[in-house]
Design a protein around this nucleic acid. Structure first.
Lengths: 234, 234
DNA sequence: GAGACACTTTGATCCAGCGCAAATCGCCGC
DNA sequence: GCGGCGATTTGCGCTGGATCAAAGTGTCTC
């Protein structure tokens, strides 16, 4: 782990306020892994043996139904924890995590969780707050799925990605990792066909620019209006 | 609070393993409330001032969208905590809680949460596990909403209620509080009309018996088969 | 026990979005 | 530069459920 990583880590919410020596003690128990694009970090149903901190890259968390359909639960960005199932009383991962690009992660053996949480209360509570936040985000998605039309759901999904991983370019805000129509469909409970049609329609209206595995949001505010159900003139 | 309540409480997961004296100290800080049917325990957007333990009754947790549509996030059963927003770093309730029947709840002032969690680690971790469980349940609902047809979703919803609050009767398993077609629709992202049609169809097949604000599941296994997408002959 | 009200059923119509199929396009490796 | 393959676009028909409308039914109040 580089010096750079270390200073990045120290700034993360769950490590905030830790004495440098304590931070070292925690970090020493982790090993650093390089995960190639499309490799899995952990697998649904797999026995939970580690929890992870994403240092660099983007990870897709996916649930697969018995009949093979996939749903993207969320994307993990650098600085976020993942696979903390065990910390929450599970012994098995509830979803798979797949690298959307080449990634670097820190992995801790699961069994040290209780010790960590106990020795460093701020680490524990920080993490629990994260879980609380995710619960609320997930509940919002339930509301979305239950009440909104496909167009609004896709708009919301894009805006969420923009906020989470958007990178400013001269054309607009680019979603900073390769993402296909299929991926967007799996985030919103629709089909790649419908997503494709929506994107071309939006492109004609100048809301977005998109290409192969790439989406740039040109006019976030107008897209937001769409997401809120306000119809878009022009 | 009656002696009966006290022994019930002592058996709950988050109070397990607490010395009786400690339990008393915690309970003394709560006040007991009676909530009439259809009254709200706390309100969406309201400033979080308390968290609650449901002692008796059933509570509906509801999110309302800006345009007035409602979604039932979950039902709370006796022995469950609710309104723990603040414990998870929120200052405001993300949903409303409405008594489905006359209820009895314990209410603690929010500000004692940190003290409680610190003094009684098992209380803290127990609660966090609950949150973890709810996160996973909610994620499963996202998967359901994203991949299943209405019929399967409604079947799943009923089975969940049966498991959570089912009471055995001579006709089958009765959902133990008044529940309308509209309620079921709000749990599954559909309309009361569609739910009504489904229930009548199922009734003809002998899967359920239902009436005004009342559903009895007669053949859970066949309903389960439906929920799983396996078609039902007969 | 009459009336009112809330809940439920049922019919009829409509359309958003899915499924299927086929063509096209962009990118990679050789 | 030439395949080849995965991603995308686009057309078309179909249908699961929503929407709209109206009638029926159980329960409570006075």
């Amino acid at each position: 782990m580089s010096r750079l990583d270390r200073s990045l880590i120290a700034g993360l919410p769950m490590f905030k306020g830790l004495a440098p020596a304590d931070l070292d003690r925690i970090l020493l128990q982790a090993r650093s892994l390089r995960i190639a694009k499309d490799q899995t970090v952990f697998e649904q149903e797999g026995e939970a043996q580690s929890f992870f901190l994403l240092l660099d890259g983007h990870v897709r968390v996916v649930k697969t139904t018995p009949d093979g359909q996939q749903v993207i639960v969320r994307y993990i960005s650098p600085g976020e924890l993942m696979g903390i199932a065990h910390a929450l009383g599970r012994t098995t991962y509830p979803a798979s995590a797949i690298a959307a690009v080449d990634c670097v992660v820190l992995a801790w053996p699961d069994h040290i969780w209780p010790e960590l949480a106990e020795s460093f209360p701020s680490f524990g509570t920080g993490t629990y707050k994260t879980v609380g936040t995710r619960l609320q985000e997930t509940q919002s998605r339930v509301v979305e799925l239950a009440t909104e039309q496909v167009e609004q759901r896709v708009a919301h999904a894009l805006l969420r990605l923009v906020k989470q991983t958007g990178r400013k370019t001269d054309e607009g805000i680019l979603i900073d990792f390769p993402i296909s129509r299929q991926d967007i469909a799996e985030m919103t409970g629709t089909t790649l066909h419908t997503v494709s049609r929506l994107l071309t329609a939006w492109e004609e209206k100048g809301l977005v620019k998109s290409g192969r595995q790439k989406v740039t949001v040109v006019e976030p505010h107008r897209l937001f209006a769409l997401a809120e159900g306000r119809a878009d003139k022009s």
